[in-house]
């Protein structure tokens, strides 16, 4: 059950900046602490860049979710790119397919409370994260 829901396109690198700002303003709206905001925005940045560079562009859907007394933000990054063949390997620290430092997926997983990834080669990738307040 989502209390608020928006979807944003991620097609160029300026969109990564824009979804970062969206993540920031939503986190501020839910009164996340400064450190939690920073972690959440950083994770958003990593995953949005993944969507852009590995998925060839896609969307980010943001939702405010509730679980009992606590509120949180769920972000869903969706692309129709080549997908990931070996998710376990992709989640390992230091694994990189694009010449980065290999901290995009594994690092952002450590910055959020819930992290789920679904991918099939040729069908694209969906990453869902939740950060609770």
């Amino acid at each position: 059950m989502a209390l608020k829901r928006e979807t944003y396109r991620i097609d160029v690198s300026n969109d990564v900046v824009r979804v970062r700002q969206v993540a920031r303003s939503w986190a501020a709206e839910l009164k996340f602490s400064l450190v939690d905001q920073t972690k959440f925005v950083t994770a958003t940045s990593e995953l949005a860049r993944n969507t852009l560079e590995h998925g060839g562009g896609g969307t980010m859907t943001a939702e405010i979710v509730e679980n009992g007394t606590k509120k949180g933000i769920r972000l869903i990054f969706d692309d129709q790119g080549p997908g990931i063949a070996n998710i376990e390997l992709a989640l390992r620290d230091g694994y990189t397919s694009a010449g980065g430092m290999g901290l995009g997926l594994s690092g952002s997983k450590r910055l959020v409370n819930e992290f789920e990834i679904n991918s099939e080669p040729g069908r694209g990738t969906t990453v869902t994260i939740i950060r609770w307040k």
């Binding site: 920073t38 950083t42 620290d93 901290l103 910055l111």
Partner: peptide, 14 residues
């Protein structure tokens, strides 16, 4: 570097 940024970078593994 801001404290929140430093904490996040360490958590990220950098």
């Amino acid at each position: 570097m801001q404290p929140a940024v430093a904490i996040t970078l360490v958590e990220l593994g950098m």
